[in-house]
């Protein structure tokens, strides 16, 4: 895209594109590792697979420095308010990878204590199937996410304002008859649970 009169070393582009390029190549993951998938996440960071090749090796454990949350492992009822609070603490722009069957859908744990997919309660960008996913799969998901950022990102974060296309899973909370319902909800704003209504 050379413009007349400029030398070869100057390139003209859109500011959005430039921002996307910068963002996608330095994702800082926040490893929200709860269970077995967390070990594969560690393996992805360790010697053989080396996530640093994709510019995402700077794992920071404080949500305020991160822009990519990797939820690795199942999220139990007691953990979900924590997850939501951490998600809210991350600054924009932020993305979320749901790693493994458990985080994406509850996996084999269809029991009373496990949240059946974190996407019911927080937004998710990329799902990684597998139990656990191989490190290669996680790397692929990082590449996919980079692709998504490059395509959809805007410098002002406008893409986050419009509701996502496609429907998020239906809330199941209404399916339970009121007589059966028990109150154990979490309030993410204060991270305390609500008292019974």
């Amino acid at each position: 895209m050379a413009v007349e009169g400029l030398s070869e070393s100057v390139m003209v582009t859109q500011l959005d594109k430039l921002a996307n390029w910068v963002r996608k190549n330095s994702l800082w993951p926040m490893p929200f590792a709860t269970a077995c998938c967390g070990i594969e996440l560690m393996a992805t960071g360790a010697s053989r697979h080396d996530i640093a090749r994709f510019g995402a090796e700077a794992m920071r454990f404080t949500p305020r420095q991160c822009d990519l949350m990797i939820v690795a492992g199942r999220v139990a009822m007691k953990m979900l308010p924590v997850l939501q609070r951490i998600w809210l603490q991350m600054p924009e722009p932020k993305w979320c990878i749901s790693m493994g069957a458990c985080a994406s859908s509850g996996g084999v744990f269809d029991t009373y204590a496990v949240v059946q997919g974190i996407d019911r309660f927080i937004p998710v960008d990329v799902y990684v199937p597998g139990c656990p996913p191989r490190p290669e799969q996680l790397l692929q998901s990082v590449i996919d996410l980079q692709d998504k950022i490059q395509r959809t990102g805007t410098i002002a974060g406008k893409e986050f304002q419009i509701p996502a296309q496609g429907h998020p899973p239906r809330s199941l909370a209404v399916d339970v008859p009121p007589t059966e319902r028990m109150v154990a909800p979490g309030n993410y704003a204060t991270a305390t649970r609500l008292q019974s209504e």
């Binding site: 009822m77 809210l88 029991t111 009373y112 937004p123 509701p163 399916d175 339970v176």
Partner: peptide, 21 residues
């Protein structure tokens, strides 16, 4: 006498959507 899938406790949380986070 408690069902394996619980009595709906696991669905009973506020939902955070993209625009509001």
């Amino acid at each position: 006498d408690y069902p394996m899938r619980g009595r709906g406790e696991r669905h009973n949380f506020p939902i955070i959507s993209r625009p509001e986070s």
